[in-house]
Design a protein around this nucleic acid. Structure first.
Length: 485
RNA sequence: GGCGACAUAGCCAAGUGGUAAGGCAGAGGUCUGCAAAACCUCCAUUCUCCGGUUCAAAUCCGGAUGUCGCCUCCA
């Protein structure tokens, strides 16, 4: 597989340090609020990477941390009059609720910052011992940025340029404005831990360095996170870890692009954000997940409810085709009539293309394009009287179905029983449109009677009435069904 | 100010040297009591603009314009 490495800014062949063992560390959330779509994107992107690596046969150790102590959590706790630990616990639980709905698999290891204080203290002491860090009279510890030669290599920054733009808070006792905190002395009333420098708590960047080192050998094969973490967070992690160990921290740095609203970054500080809950109030989680995968993970993704509705049409079409395949495969008799070999070849190509897309820097958008090609192929066979009854057709239906299972398991979508999903999607759309399913069913029953009596005038009148409610009637051999127009 | 990314049809979006995937919308057709769905066909001689390299460029190089991001907590 090829992966775009932020370190070096180009796609590279992905080669793990240890054969088929892969270590992957992704920066998780700071647990102080509900997650927004940006978190959803990052989680889904790395979930797909995790799934794909496992699919291709790697033995992956996936670590995703929780930052459960930091300024924002403390601030939030003070606002609502609770303990910081309670806030963190609450929002970690809420995070799981969202992630489970989005079908994001649990990582193998989910370390929490507060459970690794000793490791972080040890790392800090080690860095002081190597003269890469220093403590101050008030009990803070800072990393000496200028003592680490490679500083700026990930984000492509020049240390002197940074210096000129650096701001210094007068309350800080930094030797250099670029230095960043490894350990922060506690202010009265703040959660704190004993340390050689007095009561305090770890700086944000420290946890990833300490916790990744604890659970897997460095260098990490993959380190990931949102694009905004590359500087300063990941740059600082590199400085800490590499200064301490003398080894590279991570070989492949993978960063996902932002979610934007009207082409502007969505962020808490701008206030233009939607939480995952906001979306799932209206749309199915699978629709959101599908939407997130329709764009390459590094591109900015412009979110809007209109775009989500479009995505919904896409996923509906895929499931509708899968439902059709299910129906076809329920037949028990198949004819030995000839089946065009080129259709089989066409599917061979689709299968190959899907893999190529995923191999090329996890191009889920491209891969989904090929899913649609498979879907259309299924539709073409189902449409043709002879093909759909032939053994060749059956075999290709089965192949399409089996491949969709594999593709779906990698992408984390298309895994539901199609008919069930379609009903759920319809009810979801009906709820959004304010349609009462029971009332619709009543009208459909009345229409059924009218049609039985060949009273098409009445039948059409009922359909018009339903149409006025935004309900579309579909007559099928199995009876009438409905959908939201 | 420093650093960086992006610019592909009405909209969304793949495509990083070999002659423009896919989705949505739209048009025509098959099917249907009429519809809907599905399927078929059509829908970018061209990839923001201007130069250059090359047998060959959306893809590489230079410049212009525009949009966005990082440099401060942020996925």
């Amino acid at each position: 597989m090829r992966l775009y490495n932020t370190l070096g800014r180009k796609k590279q062949d992905f080669i793990p340090v240890n054969d088929n063992k892969v270590s992957m560390y992704v920066c998780g959330i700071t647990a102080y609020d509900l997650c927004h779509i940006g978190h959803a994107r990052s989680s889904v992107v790395f979930d797909v990477l995790y799934r794909y690596l496992r699919h291709t046969g790697y033995d992956v150790t996936f670590i995703r941390n929780f930052t459960d102590i930091d300024d924002k959590i403390i601030k939030r706790a003070n606002e609502v009059g609770k303990e910081a630990g309670d806030i963190a616990e609450k929002f970690i639980n809420e995070f799981y609720v969202d992630m489970d709905k989005l079908a994001v698999l649990r990582p193998d290891i989910e370390p929490k910052c507060t459970e690794h204080i000793p490791e972080m203290i040890a790392l800090t002491e080690h860095l002081i011992g190597k003269d890469h860090a220093y403590s101050t009279p008030s009990g803070d510890v800072y990393f000496k940025v200028r003592s680490f030669e490679g500083y700026g290599k990930l984000s492509g920054r020049n240390i002197d340029d940074l210096e000129s733009g650096a701001r210094v808070d007068p309350s800080e006792e930094k030797q250099d404005p670029l230095d960043f905190a490894l350990w922060k002395s506690a202010k009265p009333g703040e959660p704190s831990w004993e340390s050689p420098w007095g009561l305090g708590r770890p700086g944000w960047h420290l946890e990833c360095s300490a916790m990744s080192e604890k659970y897997v050998p460095l260098p990490l094969d993959i380190h990931g996170g949102g694009q905004d973490l590359s500087f300063p967070h990941h740059e600082n992690e590199i400085a800490q870890s590499e200064a301490a160990t003398g080894k590279p921290f991570a070989n492949y740095w993978v960063h996902n692009g932002f979610v934007q609203i009207n082409s502007e970054k969505m962020s808490k500080s701008l206030g233009n954000f939607f939480t995952i809950r906001d979306i799932l109030d209206k749309f199915l989680a699978e629709t959101l997940r599908y939407f997130l995968l329709t764009m390459h993970y590094r591109s900015p993704l412009d979110f809007s409810f209109d775009a989500l509705e479009e995505a919904e049409k896409g996923i509906k079409r895929v499931y509708a085709a899968l439902a059709q395949v299910d129906v076809e495969l329920e037949k028990s008799k198949w004819k030995k009539s000839p089946f065009p070999e080129e259709l089989v070849t066409e599917f061979d190509e689709i299968e190959k293309s899907w893999k190529e897309a995923m191999e090329d820097d996890m191009n889920t958008a491209g891969a989904l394009g090929h899913v649609f090609s498979a879907i259309r192929l299924a539709g073409r066979i189902a449409e043709d009287k002879n093909l759909r009854k032939s053994e060749g057709g059956r075999d290709l239906f089965i192949r399409i179905q089996e491949n969709m299972k594999v593709w779906g398991s990698v992408l984390g979508i298309f895994e539901r029983v199609p008919a069930e999903f379609l009903t759920e999607l319809r009810d979801n759309r009906a709820a959004r449109a304010g349609i009462d399913p029971a009332k619709v069913q009543g009208l459909l029953d009345a229409r059924k009677d009218a049609r039985k009596n060949k009273d098409f005038e009445k039948s059409d009148a009922i359909r018009d009435e339903l149409a006025a409610m935004n309900v579309e009637v579909k007559d099928t051999p199995q009876g009438a069904t409905w959908d939201v127009a």
